[in-house]
Nucleic acid binder design. Sequence first.
DNA 1: GATGAATGAGTCTTCATTCAT
DNA 2: GATGAATGAAGACTCATTCAT
Lengths: 184, 184, 184, 184
Amino acid sequence: MVAILDAAADVFAERGYEPATTNAIAAKAGMSPGSLYQFFGNKEAIAAALAERFVARMHASGFDTIDVTGLSLAELLDRIIDPLVTFNVANPGLKTLFASTDTPEKLAAATLPLHRVVSSRVEAIVAACAPGLSATDQARCALVALQIAKGMIPPIVSATGQEREALVAELKKALHGYLTQANV
Amino acid sequence: MVAILDAAADVFAERGYEPATTNAIAAKAGMSPGSLYQFFGNKEAIAAALAERFVARMHASGFDTIDVTGLSLAELLDRIIDPLVTFNVANPGLKTLFASTDTPEKLAAATLPLHRVVSSRVEAIVAACAPGLSATDQARCALVALQIAKGMIPPIVSATGQEREALVAELKKALHGYLTQANV
Amino acid sequence: MVAILDAAADVFAERGYEPATTNAIAAKAGMSPGSLYQFFGNKEAIAAALAERFVARMHASGFDTIDVTGLSLAELLDRIIDPLVTFNVANPGLKTLFASTDTPEKLAAATLPLHRVVSSRVEAIVAACAPGLSATDQARCALVALQIAKGMIPPIVSATGQEREALVAELKKALHGYLTQANV
Amino acid sequence: MVAILDAAADVFAERGYEPATTNAIAAKAGMSPGSLYQFFGNKEAIAAALAERFVARMHASGFDTIDVTGLSLAELLDRIIDPLVTFNVANPGLKTLFASTDTPEKLAAATLPLHRVVSSRVEAIVAACAPGLSATDQARCALVALQIAKGMIPPIVSATGQEREALVAELKKALHGYLTQANV
DNA sequence: GATGAATGAGTCTTCATTCAT
DNA sequence: GATGAATGAAGACTCATTCAT
């Protein structure tokens, strides 16, 4: 099961969700298609399980309980963005399930929990740094911040070394700039 | 040929690139698959031609020659973002070809010119508002601004009325915030 | 489409419904599986269409309008059984769709119209020769007569020459005997 | 082994022979597929063993030694049909193996002994009530009687209470009517 | 140039069967 | 003897692409 999710992560990362075939995932997992289907009833279930594993790992790393109170915006962003980036770099396939800015219908249900985890962190940031906004405005603000992050994940993951760091710094600048402006 | 591209735009918009079938495109275009293949050798060629048409339309609307000199950042953004949004709203399949923050391999070549047109405008903005940066930094800065815009296009296109306007305003805020910060 | 139904009739006749594969049907029809699926969305649809064709042929042969009034029971049976047998002999595959005394769930819907055509004829006979029975009793009586006929079709179709004729004669005897007794 | 046959009987009854999966049988038997295959080399062997068990049970109940001499036809039928019905009602998968009027090739060999037991009883009846017929005619007559019974078993097993009794009475009427006529 | 039926490789999925433990 | 995970061939079905008309 672990092997399947590892393989799926790789294949999703390489080809994307639609072009990924269950046979390719099985082969990469070193098993037959029949074995794969003993664990997952269909391709979407694999994506859902993979998304759940990402959620669990985020939870294990404390991502969803990051304290956000009493910090400056810059500190806040460090605490959220750094682990988010680390996580995306360490987990191929995550960007396929998470960082698509326009999730295809078939993946929507499967990846909902994953989107929720990150969303809730972003919402926490927004609530912390823009408490004066109405609920609607906060929600929109969080959406925007999330889309910015999603937009930056792919180039960040693709980059390496200093360039990656530079891009992460830019992402933080972008969020900092946006959230500062949004708080008006 | 126009009918094919119109149809492809619709089908791409509704289903995404991979799930879109050439038969569905042909049917929507009111022709047979055979006819479709007399104009385009394969599915990717349709995407490429559609991307080219978007480029041409952008050119026709003057998007790629928008004057960017001697304006405040806010004015600059208005001049770029408003037509970009208008264009994406008016052209269904555009977001499928353009606003994916992590373009699948198969689409990369086909949509390159499209990405270039928008890129060059963003680069112009960056050059105008952050002339002090090195070429490398300007390029990175432009990339970030582009990814932010790409990230926001899908929710903007999906939204309607005041919510869409609000999201556009947020996008401008985000870019304004980022470009202001980046210029340091 | 005619070729497909012909092929399906053969394959159903040879193997039965479940073991019949759509690829085998396509091959026997001299076409590729893809072509077959341009006409029928799935295997059940083939069975349904084949059943419909049997219904149409029965209709064309006047089976469903056989006059049943003012005849002796023996004459009645001749008028119904002879064409029913001829029909089953001439149409391989019919017995697979029709003469199973315990129709599998998947075929039930597809073959309903077929069962109805024959049922209605049997009901007409019953109504003609046992007018004194209640509706419930007539229905049961017709069911029994139908099951007797279904039971005899396979051996009749398998037999040839005089043996077939002899079996048909026995079927008529059986129905005659039953309907005579039932009318009490 | 008993558990396997019990399970197989249930699964065959619920789904029919082809759609019944060996895994489902193993699961219902509370064992692993591997264990199942330690007793039976393949699916057909399960059917064969189940058929044999039905034969043994029939034997144990004295079905195959029912005395048939010196009885009226009506008494004869009571002595054969009642236990046959009781037996089919009490033994789920039996109708799947026995009461198909057109046995699929794969089951033919496996269920041969089962068909023989009932056949021999029917032949005894025929011999008793139509001693004047030639061997060929007696065989045909027995076949017809058998097919009539097979045809009626499924609706009888499906029915309950009085309706079942009514159908059994009709079956007897049918056989009585047929055998009376056949004796000419 | 247009057609649309035909293609067939390839996809997801199932299941009878095996075998290392 | 029991297990149950693993197998892989095969089935239903899809779709980008072709080609005879």
